[in-house]
Structure formats: C-alpha cells, structure tokens
C-alpha cells in the first residue's frame, strides 16, 4: 500500500520480538522441564504442584551409571558409559561415512549427469519414502543370515545407507548452486579435476556439509526402531537403553530418566553450537546468495 510508510528492513519492533520470545519459550519448555527434573530428588519430582525452586542434587546422574537394581543391594555398573560410547561411535561413524560417500556421489550427479540423471535421483529418494517399519522384517532376517545382528558393522552400515539419500540430495543442491565458471577458472589455473573438487568446490559447500551433518546426526542419534532390533547388549544405543530403563519393579524413576535425557541432549547441543555459524547459511541455502 503506497501511503503506508515502508518498514525498515531488518528491524522488528518490541512487540514482535516479545511475541517470538513467548513462542520460543513454549517450544523450549519441555526441554527445560526435563533438565530441571534431572536435578530433583525423587520426592521433588513427584510433588504436586511442581516445584521450580528446589535443592538441586546430582544423585540422578550418579545412578545413570551406577545403581542397585534391587533395593538394599550394592550398586552396580549400569553399562550406560558403554551405551553412550555406542551412540556416539555409531552415529558419528555412519554420518561421516554417509557424508564422504554422499558428497562424492552428489558431486558426480551434479557435474557428470548420467543419462536419466533425474530418474536415478528419484530412485535414491524413494528408498526414504517407505516407513522403515515396512522393511524391518526382511532387514532383520538379512542381518541374521549375514551374521550382522548385534555388530557395530551391521548397524553402522544400515545407518549409513539410511543417511545417504538425504545426504546426496542435500549436497547435490549445494553443488548445483556453485558457479561453474569458478571451477573452469581452477582448471585453467592448472588444477586437476581432483584438486578442483577438493580445493575449489568443497570449501564452497562447507555450510552445506555442516547442515547435512547436523540433520544426519540428529536423525541417527534419535533412531530407536532399528537399534532395538539390530543391536545387541554390547552395541546397544541410548534410545534403546533408555526405553529399557523405564520398566522395573519399583515404578518409573522419572528423575533418572530425565538425567539420561539431559546427558543425551548434550552432544546434540554441542554439535549444533559448534556448527551454528555454518548451519544458518546451510538451512537457508539458495535464498541469500545472489
């Protein structure tokens, strides 16, 4: 509307800022609730109305790793240190593998298109269209036959395969965005195709790598269904171990669960913060440049 004064771009008023703050708080509240609960004693956890001021305790965190399963008996290791290691190792390795393979594949699809390139890309996407539960029985049987059940190799291979379609699609769109002249300039400057990829293309899609890595990590970190069926006692991941902690003879220990969840959150938060500079550019790709 012509008569209305144009708002200065880039500045929101106090009203909108406050509104955004309230929405953010509502979204963040469950996380805050969990973190608070993790520091409460058993009595405080169950008190009604809930307490927001209480004496914090670390006892829940201690019992994540050592506790007695039967009241009165000595505390024993719960194995959660191993489960944490498993989660980090499995998620980290599979996402790293997916990034390496997927980025190379995406570069290939972007720069050296095959006949029917789009069809290939579509087929890759269809592997992610099925709800995973549909394929779980054949995969379970295949893993049993191949002797991969309960092994790191098995679950890492599966997660890598799961992350690949997403990685290829994301990275291809980043490579598609790059100006081809810049790569040609590299060739004229004497770079081999390999060095064009590593020295010129890859550094330009760092934001994309970061965004893809974070999405992949979160997806893999939270995965429950396949981990439940395909990991053994030595390769169990946190989501499965957490579910198994819920049951028990003495009812649900909410404080303990909240402590596990809090610990479970830390790596995600660390990764997101470490990559946030790239992430913001990554998730808004295509909208800022040019």
């Amino acid at each position: 509307m012509a008569w209305r004064k144009r708002r200065e771009i880039g500045k929101a008023g106090w009203g909108w800022t406050g509104f955004a703050g309230i929405i953010s708080f509502i979204y963040f509240f469950p996380v805050l609730w969990i973190i608070l609960t993790a520091f409460k004693s058993n009595a405080d956890v169950l008190s009604v109305p809930p307490k927001f001021l209480f004496t914090p305790t670390l006892e829940n965190f201690v019992s994540v790793f050592r506790r007695s399963y039967i009241p009165g008996q000595a505390a024993v290791d719960t194995g959660f240190d191993l489960f944490f290691f498993n989660s980090i190792y499995i998620a980290g390795t599979s996402v790293a593998l997916a990034l390496v393979i997927g980025t190379l594949a995406a570069y290939g699809f972007s720069r050296y298109p095959l006949r029917g390139n789009d069809t290939y890309m579509f087929i890759i996407l269809t592997t992610r269209m099925l709800p995973p539960i549909i394929v779980i029985i054949p995969i379970f049987l295949m893993f049993r036959l191949a002797g991969l059940s309960g092994t790191y190799t098995g679950i890492i291979a599966l997660y890598t395969a799961f992350n690949l379609p997403f990685t290829i699609w994301m990275m291809k769109s980043f490579f598609d965005e790059l100006a081809p002249d810049i790569e040609d300039a590299g060739r004229l400057d004497g770079s081999s195709e390999r060095r064009v990829f590593f020295k010129i293309c890859l550094p330009q899609v760092r934001a994309g790598l970061a965004a893809t890595a974070v999405f992949g990590l979160i997806l893999t970190w939270n995965e429950f269904l396949f981990a439940l069926l395909l990991t053994g006692i030595d390769t169990r991941t946190i989501p499965v171990a957490m579910a198994q902690t819920i049951g028990g003879d003495i009812g649900v220990r909410w404080g303990l669960l909240a402590a596990i969840e809090t610990l479970f959150l830390i790596p995600v938060i660390v990764v997101v913060f470490a990559l946030q500079k790239h992430l913001l550019r990554g998730v808004t790709f295509g909208t800022i440049k040019r």
Binding site: D181, D184, L188, S191, Q204
Partner: peptide
C-alpha cells in the same frame, strides 16, 4: 587437457574463488 595449454582466461563473472 585444459591444464596443459598455458592459456589464461578472464570470465565475465570474474570467477574469483569466493572462499
């Protein structure tokens, strides 16, 4: 190959390495 031609080129877009 491009790399062996001892030819340089200036592009319309300049094609500088942005990173």
């Amino acid at each position: 190959p491009v790399q062996g031609r001892d030819i340089a080129m200036i592009f319309q877009s300049f094609a500088l390495y942005p990173h």
